[in-house]
């Protein structure tokens, strides 16, 4: 994802992060790779966007973090969804669905 699109899609980034943590807890790099994976390479999150988003969402109460050990026994900070985070993911998913439906309809008619 190039820099000049970051502002518009900040909410989308949040949703991606929440989605990628829905199944398992991961560290920062892992989250970035997972997002790449599930969007089939469309979204490539740079650390300059990732870290602020992670910390912001943690302060909002959607994520919690804890230090742990990665593969290779390196120390890394792992993030996990909270129940508030799961609720946020649900509502964001619904909202995004509504928006994309509306846009699709609009593009059809014109």
């Amino acid at each position: 994802m190039t820099q000049n699109q970051t502002n518009l899609l900040q909410g989308t980034l949040d949703m991606m992060i929440l989605k990628s943590l829905a199944l398992a807890e991961m560290h920062g790099l892992g989250i970035a790779r997972r997002i790449e994976q599930i969007t089939k390479g469309t979204f490539q999150v740079k650390p300059g966007s990732l870290f602020p988003a992670l910390h912001r969402m943690e302060e909002e109460g959607w994520l919690t973090s804890a230090w742990g050990e990665s593969e290779n026994n390196r120390r890394a900070k792992y993030y996990k969804l909270t129940s508030a985070g799961r609720r946020q993911l649900e509502s964001e998913t619904k909202r995004w669905g509504r928006i994309s439906l509306a846009i699709a309809r609009a593009l059809e008619t014109s």
């Binding site: 560290h27 790099l29 650390p47 870290f51 290779n72 890394a76 900070k77």
Partner: peptide, 17 residues
Amino acid sequence: RELDDEVRSYEQLLADE
């Protein structure tokens, strides 16, 4: 300090990759 550790660990993991 935690932030510093976190960013450095990211760099480290990236290098490992």
